[in-house]
Lab assay of single mutants.
Amino acid sequence: TTVHVNGVTYHFPNPEEAKKFVDRVVKEAGLTVEVKGNQWDVE
């Protein structure tokens, strides 16, 4: 699973890890998340 955060790419072994990361980032920074298949874009 690939997560893009403001142009930076993070790779995770599974969607659960990616979701935990995204949830944390979104809570801390108040960002928006767009999910496209296995790819997350966070802005």
Rank of each mutant, 00 (worst) to 15 (best):
V8Y: 10
N38P: 13
E28Y: 11
N6G: 08
E34D: 11
T1I: 15
R24D: 05
V35D: 11
F12M: 01
V42W: 08
K20W: 05
V35W: 10
V26E: 06
V5D: 01
H4L: 14
D41K: 05
V33M: 05
A18Q: 01
A29H: 12
E16Q: 07
T1W: 15
A18I: 01
P13V: 08
Q39W: 14
E16N: 04
V8S: 04
G30I: 06
N6I: 02
V22C: 12
G7S: 02
L31D: 07
E16T: 06
K19W: 11
V5Q: 02
R24L: 09
P15R: 06
K27A: 10
N38K: 03
V33Q: 04
V42F: 07
D41H: 15
N6E: 03
K20Q: 09
N38I: 04
V8H: 08
K27N: 07
V42P: 10
E28W: 12
K36E: 15
V5R: 02
V25C: 15
A18R: 01
E34A: 11
V35G: 05
T1M: 08
A29V: 09
D41R: 07
V22M: 11
V33N: 08
N38E: 14
T1G: 02
F21M: 01
T2K: 05
G7R: 02
E17M: 06
E17G: 02
D41M: 14
V5Y: 14
H4P: 01
G37V: 13
N6M: 09
V33F: 11
W40K: 06
G30P: 04
K20M: 07
E43D: 11
G30L: 07
V8E: 05
V3A: 02
T32C: 14
K20V: 07
K19N: 04
N14P: 00
F21R: 00
Q39G: 12
V22F: 13
P15V: 12
N38A: 06
W40I: 10
V26N: 09
V26C: 15
V25L: 15
E16R: 03
N38F: 06
T1Y: 14
D41I: 15
K36M: 15
F21H: 01
D41Y: 15
N14S: 11
H4M: 14
E16P: 01
N14C: 09
G30D: 06
V42T: 10
E17Y: 02
E28G: 09
F21Q: 00
A18Y: 02
L31S: 09
D41P: 10
T32Y: 04
P15K: 09
F12A: 00
Q39H: 14
T9V: 12
